[in-house]
Design a protein around this nucleic acid. Sequence first.
DNA 1: ATGAAAGCGCTAACAG
DNA 2: CTGTTAGCGCTTTCAT
Lengths: 331, 331
Amino acid sequence: MSIKKIREQTGFSNSTISRVLNGKAKEFRISDKTTRAIVAAAKKLKYRPNILARSLRLQKTMTIGLIVPDIRNAFFGELSWRIEELLRGHGYSTILCNTNEVPENEEFYLKVLIDRQVDGIIIAPIHTREWKDLHDIRRGTEIILIDRIFYDTDIPWVTGDNLKAAEALTSILIKKGFKRIAYLGGTSGTYINSMRFQGYQNALKAHTLPLIDDIIQFGGYSVEAGEAMMQNLLKADPDIKAVMCVNNLVFQGAMKVVQGYELTTSNPIIMGAFDIHPFCGIFKRPLACASQNLEKMAQAAVSLIVNRIQGKRMRKTHLILPIRVESHRFR
Amino acid sequence: MSIKKIREQTGFSNSTISRVLNGKAKEFRISDKTTRAIVAAAKKLKYRPNILARSLRLQKTMTIGLIVPDIRNAFFGELSWRIEELLRGHGYSTILCNTNEVPENEEFYLKVLIDRQVDGIIIAPIHTREWKDLHDIRRGTEIILIDRIFYDTDIPWVTGDNLKAAEALTSILIKKGFKRIAYLGGTSGTYINSMRFQGYQNALKAHTLPLIDDIIQFGGYSVEAGEAMMQNLLKADPDIKAVMCVNNLVFQGAMKVVQGYELTTSNPIIMGAFDIHPFCGIFKRPLACASQNLEKMAQAAVSLIVNRIQGKRMRKTHLILPIRVESHRFR
DNA sequence: ATGAAAGCGCTAACAG
DNA sequence: CTGTTAGCGCTTTCAT
């Protein structure tokens, strides 16, 4: 009951007040005197519009939901930050949700966001295929996949060229002369892991190196998983010299184990991983690193969803971004 | 127009449908037959309530805003995750906002959240005193400060015992025999920096060590700040042996510089810092670390705000949590 | 045991 | 140039 207060103060009708307060005074040729009176009253009464009421009336909330699998992961931290910033520039608020890699949470938040009438959802999903009951709950809500995507879906998406990057990353290690390169992977069956493992395989094949089961693991995307996988690996092959990690968290977990191991054995291990750019500076050791451009990825996702919401059809709705691969302190 | 659809299907009135769908069938002694018919129709039509409409009517949104200064910082990542999880248990959704250490963003989000009628806001503020225009915009919204707090405020808060922890952390380095201990601090005038610097000073004084201006800096809380401060420090004192960092990001920045420096000079530098627990495992070097218990902090904040919203007055509205201090690989 | 009607605060179509 | 009216979808008071 806030426009109402202004009405009581000024005597003007709701519509006139609404128009003035939404900057449509000119458009409706409302007199200067009226405009000034209303603006003054609004100021005096510290008027703030009720967004709920406006959204209900307008049937749009100017809000986007962003669902990420692990907000503790700095990768998603940066991605969220960039997306939020860009969306704000377009006038949208962002509701950030963290599923913590739990599929049930994903379904929960998808529903919550749709029930809240968000205009769109950007999601890095845990699920590996289209949610079967999505059609039931989705109103007009636009959805975009980011980073982790589905094969065969009409849902627009943007991701990195994980296949090529994993191949390049593995090749770096191969060219350094390593013939046994371990792979510490994410959850089996997920898009990211599949692509990166495929790239790893491609690199081995290109250099006619064999695939060695004992030094390949798919344990998940967390620090704990990385720790466990590295421990297993050292049991399976105490003499391993090169390790490729599926992401930054697995790398962190693996490094914990490696550091301890090297102290006792002085057997140096060369590591390669995705998105460990922040670590490249703070370790003395050689590192091979595939760095995704999160600025570009955020831009692509935001542009996709904003355009969809505004009803614009676009040429490309499925984007694969290049990933930079480089080595640090090698040789 | 969704209850409406069920009405058209079943012939029952809005009120009855609303009651059944909100589990109040028993309370209003609605017949089993009616109840079943409505539930069946809702299911068939995939009914989902419009949260906007409900919130507008109920004058509460069951939503809490969480404002953090830097979501890329894993410290706030974990804190956000825990708070969100706990709030969900209480039936609240969380809207996470990231101010990126920019004061204008903080004011913006505060307004946005209040305009959206959130029931409460948990905030780790950038500002160092109560927002002067808060009273104007705040409706009934409950507000809680976390981690970074204000002196002299009625706003409830929860934070760690930064003073004591900084003192203990510094003492560890002193007891190792260091007499010149540098301090790389956060933004001057902020609560966290003030308390931690005071603790540092207290430790020096307790051991009758002098405060040396040249090796004390207040550059901010970011990785970049840490990097810059460490570079300055090495210029000021190329022979420095012990450094205390105000937080994990400053530590990361400083470490980048230290690693390079040590490679060329073989002058080992001992580091101490707040909330670098995740790093303790992955470095071979000795580290002194003050670790906050984010689970406890999240619990305290959530319990504070939920109780306030429910109108319960509590005994303690200003909480200081203990911080664990420990050293790794020392000696 | 159920329904009619009011109203949360806002905007827009229509009317003048 | 401004006002009247309807309605977004929901819950609740009051009535029967």
